[in-house]
């Protein structure tokens, strides 16, 4: 299972990459494996402000729709429009081309408080 060291994680199986005050968010390798066959991603509206744990995006497999939560409070900067053409990027490249949205965070300390790779590894066992 691929769990990059440089990312932060949530118990909802999202990863967060912080660069300055911009956090890029996607779902983990473990999550994409559980979902399999991502066929549609509903992206959040740009400029929308959100609190931590707000559902902002939806990742859908053939069988089910799963909410994706905003891991930290902030404002949505952009969504990954490449996923509109090829939602399976979430499966094939969960940590890179398959990122889902970027959020300008209110407080970078919120990101640092999230799980690190070791803690996430413990969570999924």
């Amino acid at each position: 299972m691929n769990i990059p060291e440089n990312l932060r994680y949530t118990s909802d199986h999202e990863w967060i990459l912080l660069e300055g005050d911009i956090a890029t968010v996607g779902i983990t390798d473990h999550a994409q494996e559980e979902l399999t066959d991502v066929v549609f991603v509903e992206l959040p509206d740009e400029g929308r402000s959100c609190d931590a744990a707000d559902p902002v995006a939806v990742v859908e497999s053939v069988k089910a729709a799963s909410d994706i939560y905003c891991p930290i409070a902030g404002e949505i900067v952009s969504g990954n429009v490449d996923l509109e053409a090829d939602p399976s990027l979430v499966n094939t490249s969960p940590y890179e081309s398959g990122w889902i949205f970027k959020v300008k965070v209110n407080d970078v300390a919120d990101v640092e408080a999230l799980m690190d790779a070791a803690a996430y590894q413990d969570l999924i066992g």
Partner: peptide
């Protein structure tokens, strides 16, 4: 069983 590998593969 809902799926083994992936619904699309099986389909």
């Amino acid at each position: 069983p809902v799926q083994y590998t992936s619904i699309i593969n099986e389909h």
